Simulated scan of single mutants.
Amino acid sequence: MAEAARTQRATALLAPITDRRRHQRVKVNLLGRFMLSNKREFACQVFNMSPGGAALIAPVQGEVGERVVAYIDHIGRIEGHVARLLEGGFAMTIDAPLRKRDKLAAQLTWLANRHVLNLPEDRRHERYVPKHAHAKLVLPTGKEVNCRIVDVSLSGAAVIVSERPPVGSPVVLGPIRGRVVRHFEDGIAIEFAAVQAQDTLAAHFG
């Protein structure tokens, strides 16, 4: 009985993997959050993706076969299972009907053609010193630390913080998701996952 269960589980995992490899993989740099079966939420970064699967940099890996629900910037909600473990993350299948996979393929094509991926820190937006300089920063591990905002713009911020995650790490400044794009002597520069509205920044940081 146990052997039959293991065979069934392996077959279920191999089917999506085989299906996924029929789709073209796209190198991406998308931030998001994910939950495993314990319902705890973690930040993540998707570095390649196809309509059948995705590879994530993540602070926890889960177990092969474990259910994953993720919310990815520019993509939305995806569901699947851990297919294999990677150094610093994992690969997951994307379990979705054909119609949704077609939509995902179109989204990935649009992103690639629009050059949304791998953007450098955006300097087109004017930076200013916020009225409320002290904020909370959530690190990739989920740990929350205090930081001081040096300046902020619609597309990013510079903060002084005692712990500096590696460049490329997903972080959350106040309620806004972003990623570390540069280190400086006392802190980090953050690029927001999406350009913010001026009203949003004013509401959170003054």
Rank of each mutant, 00 (worst) to 15 (best):
Y71V: 10
Y71A: 09
I72D: 03
D73I: 12
D73R: 15
D73W: 09
H74Y: 05
H74N: 12
H74T: 09
H74G: 10
I75M: 01
I75Y: 01
R77K: 11
R77A: 13
I78F: 09
I78Y: 03
I78C: 11
I78H: 09
E79F: 08
G80N: 13
G80R: 08
G80L: 02
H81I: 07
V82H: 01
V82A: 03
V82R: 04
V82L: 03
V82N: 02
A83M: 02
A83P: 06
R84L: 00
R84Y: 09
R84Q: 02
R84N: 06
L85Q: 11
L85E: 03
L86T: 07
E87D: 13
E87I: 00
E87M: 01
E87R: 06
E87C: 07
E87Q: 15
E87T: 08
E87Y: 11
G88D: 05
G88N: 10
G88L: 00
G89F: 01
G89Y: 00
A91V: 05
A91T: 10
A91P: 11
M92F: 07
T93Y: 06
T93V: 03
I94W: 04
D95N: 15
D95G: 11
D95K: 14
D95W: 12
A96I: 01
P97S: 06
P97M: 00
P97C: 00
L98G: 12
L98T: 14
L98Y: 11
L98K: 15
R99N: 15
R99C: 14
K100M: 06
R101D: 02
D102E: 15
D102K: 09
D102G: 15
K103Y: 06
K103R: 08
L104T: 03
A106R: 15
A106Y: 11
A106M: 13
L108T: 02
L108W: 00
W110V: 03
W110G: 13
W110T: 14
W110F: 12
L111P: 05
L111M: 12
L111H: 04
A112S: 14
A112D: 07
A112F: 06
A112G: 15
A112M: 10
N113V: 01
N113G: 11
N113S: 13
R114G: 14
R114I: 01
H115I: 05
H115D: 14
H115M: 09
H115Q: 13
V116Q: 06
V116T: 08
L117K: 00
L119W: 02
P120N: 04
E121D: 07
E121M: 08
D122F: 00
R123H: 09
R123F: 00
R123S: 05
R123A: 03
R124Y: 00
R124K: 10
R124S: 01
H125A: 12
E126I: 05
R127D: 00
R127Q: 03
V129S: 08
P130W: 00
P130I: 00
P130T: 01
K131G: 13
K131H: 11
H132V: 10
H132R: 15
A133M: 10
A133L: 10
A133V: 08
A133I: 04
A133C: 12
H134M: 08
H134F: 14
H134I: 13
H134N: 15
A135P: 03
A135N: 05
A135T: 05
A135S: 13
A135K: 09
K136T: 14
K136Q: 14
K136I: 08
L137K: 12
V138D: 09
V138E: 13
